[in-house]
Design a protein around this nucleic acid. Structure first.
Lengths: 127, 127
DNA sequence: ACAGAAAACAGGAATGATTACTGTTTTTAA
DNA sequence: TTAAAAACAGTAATCATTCCTGTTTTCTGT
């Protein structure tokens, strides 16, 4: 398997993702890092995000305006996407679902769940 | 506003979407219809799906392998996406969420929610 | 029913996120 | 240190979706 080697860029990419609560896109990560890491390439960011996902260190939160938004907080929690400012908010407690038990009883294997609310956030509605 | 006029193609597209429980992609709808509707164009399918979404007659269910999957059943229900066969299943009862009340109390306006489970369906795991 | 006007459409080009490819650089492991 | 393996930069390719332009359908008032 790939991804067992150390790589300074890989570490920098993960740290950047883990350092923010903005639920960034690949492009955001690239833009943030390209100054401090000369000749970083966007492909490297994508490749490493794909690896982090395989490793379970990063999850996909939502697709906002065609861009995939990710999160290094892999704990069970839901999200709110503001359709006005495109912010993604964390929602602390995820609902405990009777659906999950039902699925497992019917022979479905759940690998992950994704709960997203869409709407207008407080900041946008009061401006 | 657009979309108030009758259009035979528009009606055919909506009926096709509403006739299936497969949670189709735009391309699937196009492939299904192109034989019975000569010179239907994929752009027309996309344009009308966008309109149906504005009108609230169709919802986005999930993005599966880069393709947006839609549903003409706009009632409140969750979905299961099989990562093996890419089938999308309906889950009858959607969970009632304490998060929703919490969001509204904090000034967030919820327009829609999206609950998706990802995993391996029974059919795939027994084959 | 008929004539503009408005809305939809076909077909193809453009966009933009993501992935693939190739030659070079880093990292590993002995 | 050194050769093999893994990562990488840079760029080209892919592919879903959107945009554009000239044509066709639909609508509305007569």
């Amino acid at each position: 398997m790939t991804g067992h080697n150390f790589s300074s860029k890989r570490e920098a990419i993960f740290k950047k993702i883990a350092s923010t609560k903005s639920h960034p896109s690949a492009k955001w990560v690239y833009e943030e890092l390209k100054d401090e890491i000369p000749n970083l390439s966007l492909g490297t960011v994508y490749r490493n995000i794909a690896l982090f996902k395989e490793q379970g260190r990063v999850i996909t939160v939502a697709n906002v305006n065609g861009e995939e938004r990710i999160d290094a907080d892999t704990s069970d929690h839901a999200h709110f996407v503001c359709e006005c400012c495109n912010s993604v908010y964390d929602l602390i407690s995820s609902e405990q679902s009777p659906l999950e038990k039902q699925l497992v009883q019917n022979g479905f294997e759940i690998k992950r769940k994704n709960v997203v609310f869409y709407g207008i956030c407080k900041k946008c509605s009061t401006n």
